[in-house]
Design a protein around this nucleic acid. Structure first.
Length: 429
RNA sequence: GGAGAGAUGGCAGAGUGGUUUAAUGCACCGGUCUUGAAAACCGGCGAGGGUUAGUAGCCCUUCAAGAGUUCGAAUCUCUUUCUCUCCGCCA
């Protein structure tokens, strides 16, 4: 959510910057509503003021034992008038809120302008794709051949498409990756490990920006109605972890807060029919190790670089070739003001595929969830900045390991950094 | 799941229809005093919003959340959420 005062005073500027995202801001409607809001709010508060002072006068008169009938006659009709004004004001406020809640974050000025992923800029490339002297298999073929370690048929029977059953060494590799990532971030990068709920309430989804606009991307325990109190499966640990800061005021000394969590993530993938239908790339349920930081506003851009580096470190230690993309205005997520995507090399697809997305949300989420810090004892609290990134998506990392470390006989070598987590095994066959 | 008790500012805690403009204490901030500190004393001290050139003043909202009764609600009524105690069940 953008600052309503800023939106009001810099409406044209905001509209121009939103346009670079391909988002059209209805300037005329907003200014018309804003004018109504101001008139109605002033009128309503004036009526409330009258009611308060007159009610108080009645109380004082009564205490003195005077006749209060004339005073009661004076307030007659005030209540009805106030009700009318309040209904009008609430309607305008609700309309303004509904618009505000659907406006994306302003892109940072360092973000390249572009309309879609073709506008993204490659920042750096690390490692080089391995040359194979045999025909590479994709992870689906490799996983099935390894004692049905990846079993999509069974998953279809149990649940449906876009699920997987893992077995034996592949299941262990999947777990090893998770443990490896958590240990790296907690021991080397200074994050605190968190265990959080996988079901969250509506307020949390609103806080991180999934609601009101993207409810269709989630699985809900009940239809998410206006009044419904149903819970939703988390699409990412970003939701529960970032919402730990909701309605909190941190001491300056507590910042930065750096948290990591391993959770399953659940996504409906509505509207992605036919895309990535084969294999582990796009699942309804996948595991992810998430990195979240809550920082002082002046530190958030530096923190984004650091956080991205923490995610990259996983790829480096796993000896996986990757590149870093700076997303352009048109390809960024709703709440982000700057995003780096990490893309890992997948030999079977002969391309780089997204494995992590690291974003600085600025104060966008913090304003929605009133996540603040006190800059100085006795001073007013200010909004902090929130960041998050995948460190990494576990399923896609498994894909990358299988494909990049495959050998001619169909076995898969284990990167040295992972071997301690695999009971010392150097290869799975 | 059953029975009961609760939810008030950073914390503790008073308040059961009208000088409550939420008492008081602790913590915190400023000052007096002091070589300095402590103590004592004096003053200040929640959050969100509106108006405005304004971090001034004035005003509105806020006592778990929502709805209601009333001229007036922290206080009365209803609903919801959460916490605690006991019982049952369970990993």
């Amino acid at each position: 959510m953008l600052d309503s005062k800023y939106l009001r005073s810099e409406l044209a500027e905001t509209a121009a910057r939103q346009a670079t995202r391909g988002f059209v801001l209805d300037v005329e409607k907003i200014s018309a509503l804003e004018e109504q809001r101001r008139e109605l709010q002033v009128a309503t508060q004036e009526l409330q003021n009258q009611r308060n002072s007159k009610s108080k006068a009645i109380g004082q008169a009564k205490a003195r034992g005077e006749d209060i009938a004339p005073l009661l006659a004076e307030v007659d009709g005030l209540g009805a008038e106030l009700d009318r004004a309040k209904i009008q004001l609430d309607a305008v406020l609700a309309e303004l809120d509904a618009i505000a809640a659907t406006i994306p974050n302003l892109p940072d000025l360092s973000v390249p302008v572009g309309s879609d992923e073709h506008g993204n800029v490659e920042v750096r490339r690390v490692g080089s794709p391995r040359q194979f002297d045999f025909e590479v298999k994709d992870h689906v073929a490799l996983g099935e051949a390894l004692d049905k370690g990846l079993d999509f048929e069974s998953a279809v029977k149990i649940a449906g498409s876009r699920f997987v059953v893992m077995k034996g060494q592949i299941a262990r590799l999947h777990r090893a990756l998770t443990q490896f990532m958590l240990d790296l971030h907690t021991e080397q990068h200074g994050y605190t490990e968190m265990y959080v709920p996988y079901l969250v309430n509506k307020d949390s989804l609103y806080g991180t920006g999934q609601l009101p606009k993207f409810g269709a991307d989630l699985f809900h325990t009940q239809p998410a109605t206006e009044e419904g109190v149903g819970m939703s499966l988390i699409p990412t640990a970003e939701v529960p972890v970032t919402n730990l800061a909701r309605d909190r005021i941190y001491d300056l000394t507590e910042l930065p807060v750096k948290m990591t969590a391993h959770t399953p993530c659940f996504r409906s993938e509505a509207g992605s029919y036919g895309r990535d239908t084969r294999g582990l790339i796009r699942q309804h349920q996948f595991d992810k190790v998430e990195l979240v930081q809550l920082v002082h506003p002046s530190q958030s851009m530096a923190a984004l670089e650091a956080l991205t580096g923490h995610a990259e470190k996983v790829l480096q230690l796993l000896e996986l070739p990757y590149r870093v993309m700076l997303l352009c205005t048109g390809d960024m997520g709703f709440g982000s003001c700057k995003t780096y995507d990490l893309e890992v090399w997948l030999p079977a697809q002969n391309t780089y595929r997204e494995i992590s997305s690291c974003s600085n949300m600025g104060d966008f989420q913090a304003r929605r969830m009133q996540a603040r810090f006190r800059p100085e004892e006795g001073k007013k609290p200010e909004l902090l900045h929130t960041l998050n990134g995948s460190g990494l998506a576990v399923g896609r990392t498994l894909v990358a390991i299988l494909e990049n470390f495959q050998q001619a006989d169909g076995s898969v070598a284990i990167p040295a950094a992972l071997q301690p987590y695999m009971g010392g095994k150097t290869v799975i066959a």
